[in-house]
Design a protein around this nucleic acid. Sequence first.
RNA 1: GUGGGAGUAGCUCAGCUGGUAGAGCGUCGGACUGUGGCUCCGAAUGUCGUGGGUUCAAAUCCCAUCUCCCACCCCA
Length: 464
Amino acid sequence: MSEGAAKKEEKPRKFQAIRGTRDLLPPETTLWNRVEQTAHEVFATFGFGEIRVPLFERTDLFARSIGEDTDVVSKEMYTFLDPPAWLEIFEKRGNVKDVDRTETTFTIKNHLPNEDFIAEVLSLRPEVTASVCRAYIEHGMQQLPQPVKLYCIGPMFRRERPQKGRYRQFYQIDAEVLGGPDAPGIDAEVIEMVMTFFERVGLEGVQLGINSIGDKNCRPKYVELLRVELLKVKDKLGPDSQRRIETNPLRVLDSKLESEQKIIEKLPRIADHLCKDCAEHYAAVKRELHLRGVKYQENWRLVRGLDYYMRTTFEITAKGLGSQNAVCGGGRYDGLVELLGGPPTKGIGFAIGEDRLILSLQESGKGVAAQGRDVYIAWMGEKAYAAAIRAAKTLRAAGLSVELPPVEQKFGKALGQADKLGARYALILGDNEVSSGEWTLKTLATGEQQKLTEPRLLEFLKKL
RNA sequence: GUGGGAGUAGCUCAGCUGGUAGAGCGUCGGACUGUGGCUCCGAAUGUCGUGGGUUCAAAUCCCAUCUCCCACCCCA
């Protein structure tokens, strides 16, 4: 070693999860599985089938459906080019004129002889409705019996500032009904389904708010009326709301500012300005909810931020979630499939924020404890080890959770381990057991022990 | 993107006005070579988030930066 080699070894820098992402660890993952399993079960009883779609799509799929001007599209998507080497190629050529840039592709002309270099613009999905509609169109699902009922569980990605219940990689449980007639019963059934699901998972403090935001006939007129009224009181509003008068008047209704509440209460309400069809549809949805025993609160201020929503909108809140207390949002989007190049198709769906659902369940004590073992096998000696392996195999085949220590331990230590792991039984296998043929089974909670022959003991445990 | 709070052992945190680190819990080992939960003893683990500055001396003071938390904006 040369002089100066005595320096501290440089430790590799520790890696950590990217901002806004996180690891889900046991035992919490058990709760996630329980929630998802419940979704599978409940949704199946309503005739929904699971669809799994890619985590990324062409950017313009999202842009077109969600709306070019929404924050989600304009600044919150994780967007990249495929293939990613376009930049190097671009720099080598150094000629802007040869690059043809569109919303969806970068084309470099004559990159190779007779070959253009085309890079597609892709994005990680910020939500999944657009993908499901794309799949509906791509697989000709309009040929299936209508409506088509689908659900999808998985991660979404938005580059937002993290806060309570809001992450950059977050999970949604999403359901969509595509096609079929213009029947309010579909809206009501979708809402009934999600409420059933929440009841089944034990979510507390659930409140359903509903509203109708009209369609392309009546909504624009209402928005214009709202804008006019808002301009009259503009100087009484905060800067955010003032800005929204221009960008999205509907969102002023969402304002949480205490000082604006009285003003907002006096604004015109869309329920009074719905066209005949929309008004009838809304009334029918409420009637249908009654028939299904679903309790709701009308919330005329409930609007949706995404462009594609129309008529029915709804939102479900739960407790223990801080300022991000919505655990599910949804609504009708009849024009979306057509907008994406498919046939005219009705659509309605919802998305449950799974992270928030889990959070709320944990806050109200519905979390889960660490999974214990059914049997801890305390063995000592070569012969006992062979018997232990045999026993573990049999018990596991019977579906029991078995811990088989890989190295020999003194019995005191083994029982200590069994205790820490929350085992129900300890199967004690030592020289005595091997020679007598009678195995010892200890019930950890009571300390009771019994001696049983191998077949009888396995029989006994398999009945657990 | 904006504002506020916080980063010290695996976890929860102490460390006053500068003198180069502690507790509890947990982990591992032992007291206890065939019997756990209790008790007792012992051990390991930190570039005090990171980088720079002031100083004889920085976990402590100053600046920057990163990350986390909460809220805003936005939003299922």
